[in-house]
């Protein structure tokens, strides 16, 4: 029972890694750049959500909509201000520093203009755990058995829904197919009449919007702070390397693996070692299968 509870917490944490990793995957596919500020976009989502929902008492869905909007605008600004200029300068890796810099600017801005403290974020579904299989008490409540935070359930379902929606969009819609075409071959995609710049802009806006939603989702579990995204961004990056950066399905598996291994290690070994299994697997994969578990070699025939 306890293991099941740990698994659920691990899966919830893992889905957050998976969401951010999925964001890395989306922009990497279309632009071949990685947006290293994604962890701090998650923080931005958490902080903006906190200010609107907790401080100003907006309805939850209004706050969430505003967060999505902030994420989309943020992604567009990031692309225009940081990524495009460094791509135009023919510096092969300028975008690494540029996106890292945007992340640092976001974090410092949150510290300067908002707060350096940690805050509690109330879950829209309530903060007392749902109990299953417990002993009913005379007053109607339950004790023992399996306790699950409603927010964990929300995280799992919303994240899966986001990933499934994006994957369906890529496979089923004409514009989605155009996004995949740009990922595969930009020049040929533009010979089909596809505006590759627009597709890349779209992919940045989508990935940052997903990350900001991730911030609102994870906030009730981790607390909100200006630094909440820093480590998360790095771990999500590990998740995407483990799963294979090129594979939308792979990054989800990578995220789940990290989340579950953390929660099981924290309980059965020591919280101090909770990051070890994930990083050991990361190093092993980098040594023996650098394309990741689900990274595939492209089919190419000439």
């Amino acid at each position: 029972m306890q293991t099941l509870q740990l698994l659920i917490s691990g899966v919830a944490q893992g889905m957050i890694y998976a969401l951010v990793a999925f964001g890395y995957n989306i922009t990497f596919a279309t632009s071949k750049t990685l947006n290293f500020s994604l962890g701090n976009f998650l923080m931005l989502g958490g902080v903006v959500g906190f200010i609107l929902y907790m401080t100003h008492n907006w309805p939850f869905f209004a706050a969430l909509a505003a967060v999505v909007l902030v994420g989309m605008v943020g992604g567009a600004v990031l692309l225009k201000v940081a990524v495009e200029p460094s791509l135009n300068q023919r510096s092969a890796y300028g975008w690494i520093l540029a996106t890292l810099a945007v992340g640092i600017v976001l974090r410092n801005a949150a510290e300067v203009f908002w707060s350096t403290d940690d805050f509690k974020f109330r879950s829209p579904l309530g903060d007392s755990p749902w109990r299953f299989f417990g002993e009913p008490q005379p007053d109607g409540s339950m004790s023992g058995g399996l306790g699950v935070y409603p927010q964990e359930v929300l995280i799992i379902f919303v994240s899966l829904a986001i990933v499934a929606a994006v994957e369906l969009f890529k496979r089923r819609t004409v514009f989605g197919k155009a996004v995949v075409a740009v990922s595969e071959d930009k020049d040929t995609a533009s010979l089909m009449g596809i505006d590759q710049k627009f597709v890349i802009l779209f992919s940045f806006m989508l990935s940052t919007a997903i990350a900001t939603v991730g911030g609102v989702l994870v906030a009730p579990i981790t607390l909100v702070s200006a630094t909440m995204g820093t480590v998360l961004g790095v771990k999500a990056y590990s998740a995407s390397i483990i799963g294979g950066l090129e594979s939308g399905f792979g990054v989800v598996v990578g995220g789940l693996f990290l989340g579950v291994s953390e929660s099981l290690t924290a309980r059965f070994v020591s919280t101090g070692y909770k990051d070890v299994p994930g990083f050991v697997v990361l190093v092993l994969l980098l040594l023996f299968k650098p394309s990741g578990l689900f990274g595939r070699a492209a089919i190419r025939k000439v």
């Binding site: 197919k177 155009a178 995949v180 075409a181 595969e184 040929t188 596809i194 089919i299 025939k301």
Partner: peptide, 12 residues
């Protein structure tokens, strides 16, 4: 587009 189906290539 090698990683998309024949039909998807035509759609594109």
């Amino acid at each position: 587009f090698a990683q998309q189906t024949v039909r998807d290539n035509l759609v594109l």
